[in-house]
Design a protein around this nucleic acid. Structure first.
Lengths: 334, 334
DNA sequence: CTGAAAGCGCTTACAG
DNA sequence: CTGAAAGCGCTTACAG
C-alpha cells in the first residue's frame, strides 16, 4: 500500500503538501496540485483512515446501537440500518455496528474508547437504559424513537400524534360519526413504546374534537389470536362501519378476515391505518394509511447528528416527521 | 482520556511495559503487572483502538457487506446482521457496515483503504459482482449464501439439498406416494438465488429415488396472487394430499387458505416446508419444517473468517449447515 | 525482566 | 505558497 510519503516522493513535494491537497484545507498551486494528483492516481494511493483519525482525533465513524429483542421482532429493522448507513456515507461517515448486548455498558465502553464520533440509537423506548451513559458523558448522539421525557438528546420520530389526527379527520370528513379504534394490546403500552401512547391519546382527543364516537379495542398480536379477535369484532351485533387501526399484526390480518366474512371495503366498512412501510409492502395492504418513513427518519437523524459534530450548536429537540396520507380509497361516505 | 503514557507514569514503569501487560505478549513480573493494572483502573484507561491498529496494521474490524434490494425484501436480514455482529464481538472484532451502494466498487475501496481485516458478504447470489474484487485482491472474506460456482472463497449456507431430502423422506416414510411441490416462481430461479435450484433438484432426485410422484407447482409471491394460486391448487379435481413447500410467501399464506377452504392438516393434507426462521415465528407456522438457522450460519461464517485471519490455512470450502427438522405433526400416514 | 527508541501513516502549527 | 518538525497513541524489535 502506498503511503503519503510515497506520493510525496513521486510528486517531488513534501508530505505536508500532499496532505494539503488531500484535506483541501490549504491552497496549493494548481500545478503542484496536479502533480500530486497524478502521483496519487499512479500509485493508486488512498488515505489510511486510521492514521488520519489518530492525527485528527476524529474517527469519522458513527456508532449504530441496535436493540434486538426476539419478542418485538421487527422486519423494519434492516431498512433503518441500511438507510442510516447510506446517509452517513453520503456525509462522509462510516458506520460501526453495536449490538446492545450488554445494554448501557456497551454504550459506555464505546464512548470511552473513542471509537466513534457520535452515536445513533435505534428503537428507543421509554426509560431507555442506553440514554443515561450518553447524557453523563455529554457524548454526541441522536435517538430514533422518542423517550418518555425529553432526555437532552436530539430525537427523531414519525409524528404519531399528527398521524392520528390525520386519520381521524379523514374519517370524520367522510361523515362518519362512529368508529372502532383497533390499538395495541396492554403489553405494548406497558413496554415503553411511546408511539403507542402518543397515537392513542391524540386519536382520542381528535375524535372528541370532531365528535367522532370512538370504541377502543386493543388487539393481541399472535396470528391466531388476532384473527379470532377481528372475527369477533365483525361478528358482533353492531359490526363497525369504520376502523382506525394502529396495530401491525391486526392490519396485516385484516384483509383475510374481511374476505373470510365477505365484508367489502369500503362498501361495508371504511378502514384507515397507521403502520410500518415494510408491512404495507410485504402484504400489499389496500388501505388508506399513514406509513412509517424509515428513509426520511433515518436521514433526518443522521443529518442532525452530523450537524452537531460539525459544531452547529442548538437546543436538543425532537424532530417529528410529518405524516403522509397514502390514499387508497378505503373510506366511503357515511 | 488517559493514554498509555499516563498509565506508565502512574505506575512508575515504561510505556512498553504497560503495552506488555495490555497485549499479554510478554511476561511481566506479577508485582509490576499489579501496579500497572491498578493504574489502569485508577485512570479509567482504555486502549485507543485506532492507535493500536496503526501500530499493528490490524484493525480488528470486519466489514459486513449488505445487499438490500427493495424487490427481495427480507425480514431475515436484521437477524443475520445482529448475529454476525455478536459473534464477531465475541471473537474480538468490531463490525463496520458496508451497504452495497455501488456494488463491486464499494468492496474494492474498502479493501484498498485497509479499514477492515476481512469481509463478510451477506445474501450472496449467483455471479455476485462483489466476489471478483475480493478474489483479485486475495482479501480474506467469507460468503453467506452460495455462489453458482466455487469462487475460491469460503462460503457458508444452510444445506438446502439435504433439507430437501429430509422433507421428501419424511413424506415418503409416512407412506405418501404422491405430493405437490410448491416452489418459487421462475423469476427467483432466474435471479441467481442458488438455494432455489439446490433445493429443487435435490427434491426431485430424492423423490425419484423414493418413488414419490412429485407435481411441481411454482407459486407467485404477491399476497393476492399466492392466495389465488393456492386456492386453485386445492380446488382442482384432485386436490393434493401432501405438500412440500419451498416458498416463503406461499407457506405464510397457506394456513389461511386452508382454513378458508375447510381443509385440515394433516387429516386432509400433509404439509412439510423449508422456510426462514423469522417467517415461522412471525406467522406461528404450524408445519413440520426445516428452518433457516441464521445464528448458526452467522457463527460458522465469522468463525471461519477469523480462523483465516489468524493464519489457519486450508482449502477454501463451502460449509453447509445440516438441516434440522422441527416436528409439528403436520404429516399423516397415507 | 524492563526500558529507550523507532516507527505505524497521517495532520498541523510554525518557519521560511 | 512550501517544507521540516513534532505529535496523535500505540507496538515491537533491540539493548541492557
Amino acid at each position: 500500500m502506498a503511503t503519503i510519503g510515497d506520493v510525496a516522493r513521486e510528486a517531488g513535494v513534501a508530505r505536508s503538501t500532499v496532505s494539503s491537497v488531500l484535506t483541501g484545507r490549504k491552497f496549493v498551486q494548481p500545478e503542484t496540485r496536479a502533480r500530486v494528483e497524478e502521483a496519487i492516481v499512479k500509485l493508486d494511493y488512498t488515505v489510511n483512515m486510521g492514521a488520519r483519525a489518530l492525527a485528527t482525533s476524529r474517527s469519522m465513524t458513527l456508532g449504530l446501537v441496535v436493540r434486538f429483542h426476539e419478542a418485538e421482532f421487527s422486519p423494519a429493522l434492516a431498512t433503518y440500518i441500511v438507510a442510516i448507513t447510506d446517509v452517513a456515507r453520503g456525509l462522509g461517515y462510516r458506520m460501526l455496528l453495536l449490538t446492545d448486548f450488554d445494554g448501557a455498558d456497551a454504550v459506555r465502553t464505546v464512548i470511552r474508547t473513542r471509537q466513534v464520533d457520535g452515536l445513533v440509537l435505534l428503537s428507543v423506548v421509554e426509560n431507555d437504559a442506553r440514554i443515561a451513559p450518553i447524557v453523563e458523558a455529554g457524548f454526541p448522539a441522536v435517538l430514533i424513537g422518542m423517550p418518555a421525557t425529553p432526555s437532552g438528546i436530539d430525537a427523531v420520530d414519525l409524528d404519531f400524534s399528527q398521524g392520528a389526527r390525520v386519520l381521524v379527520d379523514h374519517l370524520a370528513d367522510a361523515g362518519h360519526a362512529r368508529a372502532t379504534f383497533v390499538t395495541w394490546p396492554a403489553e405494548v403500552f406497558g413496554s415503553g413504546r411511546t408511539y403507542a401512547e402518543h397515537f392513542r391519546s391524540a386519536c382520542l382527543e381528535e375524535a372528541r374534537r370532531r365528535g367522532l364516537d370512538l370504541v377502543v379495542r386493543p388487539s393481541p398480536v399472535g396470528p391466531e389470536m388476532v384473527r379470532a379477535s377481528l372475527r369477533e369484532l365483525f361478528q358482533s351485533d353492531q359490526p363497525p362501519r369504520a376502523l382506525i387501526v394502529h396495530n401491525d399484526a391486526a392490519v396485516a390480518m385484516l384483509p383475510l378476515v374481511l374476505r373470510e366474512l365477505g365484508i367489502q371495503v369500503p362498501r361495508d366498512c371504511s378502514v384507515v391505518s397507521l403502520h410500518s412501510a415494510e408491512l404495507a409492502r410485504q402484504f400489499a395492504l389496500p388501505y388508506t394509511a399513514v406509513e412509517s418513513q424509515p428513509e426520511r427518519v433515518s436521514a433526518l437523524a443522521v443529518e442532525r447528528l452530523v450537524a452537531r459534530l460539525s459544531g452547529e450548536a442548538s437546543e436538543p429537540t425532537t424532530l417529528l416527521v410529518p405524516p403522509v396520507l397514502s390514499e387508497r380509497h378505503s373510506v366511503a361516505q357515511a
